[in-house]
C-alpha cells in the first residue's frame, strides 16, 4: 500500500476511535467506556501476550544463530569482541542488557546513503536519540500513572514526579517527559514520512501504532495542561477499576476528553499483542541476539534428529568377507 492511503487509513482509524471514546462518554455511555472496555482490553492484552510468547517459546531454536559483528573467540592471541560475538552466558547478558536498555543496535547501520554512486551505511544518531527519548518518557509516564491506580501513592512514584517536574514551571507542574514523549513520537513519525526509503516500506501497521500513541500522549497532555478534569473523580474511577469495585458514580464528573484518552489506551492494550509493538517481548526472545556464539567449542545437536540405523564398514566387511575374498577384493581383516 502506498503512502497516502496507509497514512490516511491509520489517521482516520485513530480519529474515529478517539471519537467513539469521547462521543460515547458525552452520550452517556461512560460506564461502558470507563469500566467494561478497559477490563476487556486488559484481558485481551494479557491473554494475547501469553499466547504469543508461548508460541515463540514453542518454536524450536536448535542451533546457535546469533548475528555477530565482531571477532569470535578462537585462539588466545587473537583479540576477540565479547559483546558483538559473545561466548559466555555473562557476555550474552551484557549484550542483551545493552540492547534492551540502550537500544545498541539502533546505533549500527541505520542510515543508507549514496557515496560516489555506491550505498554506504552509517549511524542515524537522531533515530537512536528519538527512540531513547520516547521509550524512557513512556516508561516514566506509565509509572507516574500509578498515582491514579493506587489509593496510597508509592514513594518511588512521588520521587519520579519530583525528578520529572524538576523545572517547577507552571501549575500543574510541567513534566519533562510530557513533551519528551510527544517530541520522540513526532520525530519517529516524521522520519517515516519524510525519508523516502523508510516511507516506501511503511504500511498502515507502522503508522497506526505511532498515531495511536500520539493520540494517547496528546490527549493526556491536554488533560493535564489544557482542558483539565476533576482528577479526584478520575482517581475514584481508576482506583475502583484496579480494586475490582468500579465507581460508576464518579463518571458523571469526568471530562469526556478523559474517555477519549482512556478508549485509545484500551485500544492500544488490545492491539498490542497482535502488532509490531510486541518487540517489547520480542527483544528478549530474539535468537539472533540472545544466544552465545560458541558453536566451535560446543556441539549443538538438533534434538529432533531421527535415530539413524548405522551400518559401519567393519560390519559390512564381516557380512561379506568370504564373498569379497572369492572375487579378489581387498579386505581389512583376514
Amino acid at each position: 500500500m502506498s503512502f497516502m492511503p496507509s497514512f490516511l487509513i491509520s489517521l482516520a482509524a485513530v480519529a474515529v476511535l478517539f471519537g467513539i471514546g469521547y462521543g460515547g462518554a458525552a452520550a452517556g455511555a461512560g460506564a461502558v467506556i470507563g469500566i467494561y472496555v478497559p477490563y476487556a482490553a486488559l484481558l485481551v492484552f494479557l491473554g494475547g501476550l501469553v499466547w504469543k510468547v508461548a508460541d515463540w517459546a514453542n518454536s524450536p531454536v536448535p542451533f546457535r544463530i546469533p548475528t555477530t559483528s565482531g571477532q569470535q573467540k578462537s585462539l588466545d592471541w587473537i583479540r576477540r569482541d565479547p559483546i558483538d560475538s559473545p561466548f559466555t552466558k555473562g557476555e550474552v547478558v551484557l549484550r542483551m542488557a545493552l540492547e534492551v536498555l540502550f537500544f545498541r543496535s539502533l546505533l549500527k547501520n541505520t542510515k543508507t546513503q549514496l557515496h560516489h554512486g555506491k550505498p554506504a551505511y552509517a549511524t542515524d544518531l537522531w533515530l537512536w536519540l528519538a527512540a531513547i527519548i520516547f521509550h524512557y518518557s513512556m516508561l516514566v509516564v506509565l509509572l507516574r500513572h500509578l498515582r491514579l491506580f493506587l489509593a496510597e501513592t508509592p514513594f518511588f512514584v512521588t520521587a519520579i514526579e519530583r525528578a520529572d517536574g524538576f523545572m517547577q514551571v507552571g501549575v500543574p507542574v510541567f513534566y519533562a517527559t510530557s513533551i519528551g514523549i510527544l517530541l520522540g513520537l513526532l520525530w519517529l513519525l516524521s522520519r517515516r514520512i519524510l525519508n523516502p526509503l523508510v516511507r516506501y516500506i511503511s504500511l498502515p501497521n507502522d503508522y497506526f501504532p505511532l498515531l495511536l500513541l500520539l493520540g494517547i500522549a496528546g490527549s493526556g497532555f491536554c488533560l493535564r495542561y489544557i482542558d483539565k478534569t476533576d482528577i479526584v473523580a478520575v482517581k475514584e474511577l481508576t482506583v475502583g477499576l484496579a480494586s475490582f469495585s468500579p465507581a460508576a458514580d464518579a463518571i458523571a464528573n469526568i471530562n469526556p476528553l478523559f474517555f477519549g484518552h482512556l478508549f485509545l489506551v484500551a485500544i492500544l492494550f488490545a492491539y498490542f499483542p497482535f502488532s509490531k509493538l510486541m518487540h517489547l517481548a520480542g527483544v528478549f526472545l530474539s535468537p539472533t541476539r540472545n544466544l552465545a556464539n560458541n558453536s566451535r567449542a560446543e556441539r549443538h545437536i538438533n534434538p529432533w534428529n531421527p535415530k539413524v540405523k548405522m551400518h559401519t564398514y567393519d560390519e559390512y566387511e564381516d557380512d561379506f568377507r568370504d564373498l569379497m575374498k572369492e572375487v579378489g577384493l581387498p579386505v581389512e581383516k583376514e
Binding site: L46, L146, F149, L150, A151, E152, P154, V232, K235, E236, V239, A242, S243, F244, A247, A250
Partner: peptide, 17 residues
Amino acid sequence: AVTYPMWGGVFAKTPAP
C-alpha cells in the same frame, strides 16, 4: 509487574476524599 496496580493497593485502602 503489569498487574501491580491491582495487587499493590490491596493492603492499603484509602477511601476517596
